[in-house]
Amino acid sequence: MITVDPVIIALLAIVAVPFVGAIIMGLDRRLTARMQGRVGPPLLQPIYDVLKLLRKEPIVVNRVQVVYACLHLAFMILCVVLLALGQDMLMVLFVLAFSTIALILGGMSVRSPYSRIGSQREIMQMLSYEPILILMMVGIYLINGSFMARDILVSGKPLLLSLPLLFPAFLLVMTIKLQKSPFDFATSHHGHQEIVKGITLEYSGPFLAILEIAHWYETFLLFFIATMFWATSIPVGLLIAAVCFFGVILLDNIVARLTWPWMLRFMWTAGLGLAATNILWLYI
């Protein structure tokens, strides 16, 4: 096997990942448009958007929000780097949590009721999905005997076969993290959110671009984790990611937004129940 310098892998991940993320987002917009009977924007529209945002005048409400925007992006990148280096996956989750909390605090740092409500709801989202993600890593450990991402293939068997109930739970998490209906209450891709743009409302220009780029990384990260469920064969893994992608967008277009108390209840019963059941039989 060819060994590549980890620094090169990391740099490659930092540069290539946002493009993949942007293309996934572009595909999302196309597919959504088709489902709604529209033609939709060009595939690279997310990149065009961000390039335009970056050239705009920096407008802020205060300086604090800039700090958090940068932290959000930096730690999102760090997640991808750690994963690319095959590091401990629990740590990756904690770094991801850091990134999300930076986003939340950025939304709360401004005196805007909409942004604050968005942040509060984002906290509730974290509370709903964080335990499931950690349980997923526990499941992976129980199969592979290691928390390291580089040991993902150790068991030689696709994870999906051992974690069949954790996979739908992860799909729910993915729907929340991608800000899709019925869970898009902190912020939404669509312009019909009752709290306007929620958590990202007070960001504009280059700082909004930073958040968008971070979202590319995050999108990639989520689909990458989806492929890990069948890491033994890359085509099957990609197929699984594609099915997830289609499922999430379909769900986004056919269901209405619900409320966060409903989400918390649902995720702590159905989501956590699925995950815990799956973990339980791995222990026995």
Binding site: V61, N62, R63, L105, R111, R116, I123, M126, L127
Partner: peptide, 16 residues
């Protein structure tokens, strides 16, 4: 994470 981030969010809110 919930109670700490709520608290931080409250005290750091500031206009320019």
């Amino acid at each position: 994470v919930v109670f700490w981030s709520k608290w931080i969010g409250r005290i750091q809110t500031v206009a320019y």
